[in-house]
């Protein structure tokens, strides 16, 4: 760690404070505007809500379809996370702990997805889903999200499983455990931190995605939260009080998740494919 002189400290604190304001003020304004009337937003932009009410929240909730957006995003992100964790940990376990031909190739092959964003393949993916009648469907999105998140999850899980001592799985094998039992009773309990990182990070990735729903979903009742708010912005361009409120509502769940799990988020990022 760098040691600072007294003046250095003052300078650093000042700069960090300015930066913090730059980050937080737009947030706080958004939240504050969610409780103001349209007139107050235009005429008194910097004042706090004078007569705070939940009117905007009720209106935005109903008109933007926030509840349905939450539910769709929750179903999609929740199911995708379950799939991602099971499928990726299977794969990572096999290429980390067992020797077989093509194992190194499989690892590099799965890394390609980190280097080539899936959205470059959006047209063929779209056609593929159309052929099996899974466009405009939540299941279609779930399948795509599982596939998209495999590279990152495999990478992170493999790094953790590499750290599980071979003696442990060897001992279990001698005791007569089969590979699936070793996976279930030896490996999984030891990589729980990695599983929670993968779950939380991929949940937020899916929840926050906009591009795939934009292309695949054209039925408002199936819109995810990002798509629902985006449609709402197109329709109510002048109702700023409701627009701010819909943003606050759409953003709240992930911010709350972050406040609870900030450690996992930060670990997921710094131990992901960067380090």
């Amino acid at each position: 760690m760098l040691t600072l002189s007294k003046y250095g400290k003052i300078l650093v604190y000042t700069l960090l404070l300015i930066y913090t304001m730059l980050v937080l003020v737009p947030f706080l304004m958004m939240i504050s505007n969610s409780f103001k009337s349209m007139r107050d937003i235009y005429l008194k932009p910097f004042s706090l809500p004078t007569d705070p009410s939940f009117r905007n929240i009720i209106d935005a909730w109903n008109q933007a379809g926030i509840g349905r957006g939450y539910l769709n995003s929750l179903i999609i992100a929740g199911s995708a996370v379950v799939g991602i964790v099971i499928i990726s940990s299977f794969f990572a376990y096999a290429i980390s702990k067992y020797e077989f031909r093509g194992r190194r190739f499989l690892f590099m092959y799965s890394m390609l997805g980190l280097a080539f964003p899936a959205r470059l393949a959006i047209i063929p993916i779209y056609l593929l889903l159309r052929n099996i009648n899974l466009t405009n469907s939540r299941l279609g999105l779930i399948i795509i999200y599982i596939a998209v998140n495999i590279p990152f999850s495999v990478f992170l899980l493999k790094n953790f499983i590499d750290g599980v001592p071979n003696e442990l799985s060897e001992a279990a094998r001698i005791d007569g455990a089969n590979p699936l039992q070793i996976y279930r009773h030896v490996v999984i309990p030891l990589i729980k931190p990695a599983i929670s990182i993968v779950s939380i990070v991929s949940f937020v990735n899916v929840w926050n995605d906009f591009f795939f729903p934009l292309i695949f979903i054209n039925d408002r009742s199936k819109a995810t939260i990002t798509l629902a708010v985006s449609i709402f912005f197109g329709e109510y361009a002048n109702r700023w009080n409701l627009l701010f409120t819909s943003l606050t509502l759409a953003i709240a769940p992930t911010i709350i998740l972050f406040l609870i799990f900030s450690r996992q988020f930060i670990a997921g990022m710094t131990q992901g494919a960067i380090k």
């Binding site: 990726s88 390609l112 997805g113 063929p124 593929l128 795509i144 599982i146 596939a147 998209v148």
Partner: peptide
């Protein structure tokens, strides 16, 4: 993983 990833990412 191999099938999902190949079918929905690599093949497209």
């Amino acid at each position: 993983a191999l099938i999902l990833y190949t079918l929905f990412i690599v093949y497209p």
